[in-house]
């Protein structure tokens, strides 16, 4: 098969392109030498420097808090928005609403960041920790809405009707039936929102204030001054965290899949 050899080559080159820079970055975080091109032996030196860099550590702590709070708010709002999109076929301004869900996904960050900043100034709100959270909540909720929406579209409505039919009022039905069943999508949405918040430089730069310097802002200001292995070290840790998160998530999916297959076997055997 010539086609499959072509495919294999394309994929190998493509994934090499995607991963080699990251791998290099990780390797050089363990480089004893300060120069990128010189391998001075294995060292954890840069991790120590990083650890004692108070500014960097403070920024990491701010970023973690911003990430958790805005991802949580974004998940709540995004889940509601997804419900509104899927379950309400008609309400005034539905077009505008779905437009506002999709637009932030592609809107250049400089526009989103600047416009939100001007809102805060207009409302006379001091910029800082909470303005970054509001900004992040606003754009992450749209991603959550898309993720949860795709789950809701395949949701069997008769499950909810069955609960109503058995005497369970609508709000209780949502918490007892709908929410537990869409939970995997909600969690995925939260994780996506958290990483997006962790990752954001531009929107945070516009909306931050004194004492609310996030990690990307810190990294950016240092990167502008040149490549330092210290940045490689913190990047490696971030990559490591994300990789661990993804591995845990995929193990979870795999387990659920195995359980499903086992259940099907049980069901096939299970005669009276």
């Amino acid at each position: 098969m010539r086609a499959s050899r072509f495919d294999a080559t394309v994929l190998t080159l493509g994934f090499a392109f995607l991963y080699i820079p990251i791998v290099i970055l990780v390797i050089y975080s363990f480089n004893a030498s300060r120069l990128v091109t010189v391998w001075g032996g294995f060292s954890l030196n840069w991790y120590r420097t990083m650890w004692s860099n108070q500014g960097l550590m403070d920024a990491a702590w701010v970023t973690a808090r911003v990430g958790v709070i805005s991802a949580t708010l974004g998940t709540v709002l995004g889940t509601l928005a997804a419900l509104a999109l899927v379950r309400f076929s008609r309400f005034p301004g539905r077009m505008l609403f779905s437009g506002m869900i999709y637009a932030p996904l592609v809107m250049p960050e400089v526009i989103t960041g600047l416009s939100m900043l001007l809102l805060f100034v207009a409302l006379n709100i001091d910029r800082g920790f909470w303005t970054v959270i509001i900004a992040h909540t606003t754009f992450t909720m749209c991603y959550v809405a898309i993720v949860v929406q795709s789950r809701l579209l395949t949701f069997d409505r008769s499950l909810e009707e069955a609960a109503l039919d058995l005497g369970c009022p609508p709000v209780k039905t949502f918490f007892k039936i709908t929410l537990p069943l869409i939970m995997p999508a909600v969690i995925a949405g939260w994780m996506l929102a958290f990483t997006l918040s962790l990752d954001d430089l531009v929107i945070a730069s516009f909306n931050t204030g004194p004492g609310a310097t996030t990690l990307p802002i810190k990294i950016y200001s240092q990167v502008r001054l040149g490549v330092t292995p210290e940045i490689n070290a913190i990047c490696t840790i971030l990559i490591g965290l994300v990789t661990i998160g993804v591995i845990i998530a995929s193990i979870g999916t795999k387990r659920a899949e195995m359980r499903r297959i086992r259940d099907e076997h049980v069901a096939a055997r299970g005669t009276t």
């Binding site: 008769s158 499950l159 009707e161 039919d165 369970c168």
Partner: peptide, 16 residues
Amino acid sequence: PYRRPTNMMFQSYALF
């Protein structure tokens, strides 16, 4: 529906 004295068996069964 949650206050009606009727109960329904769904075509898809709708088991939770």
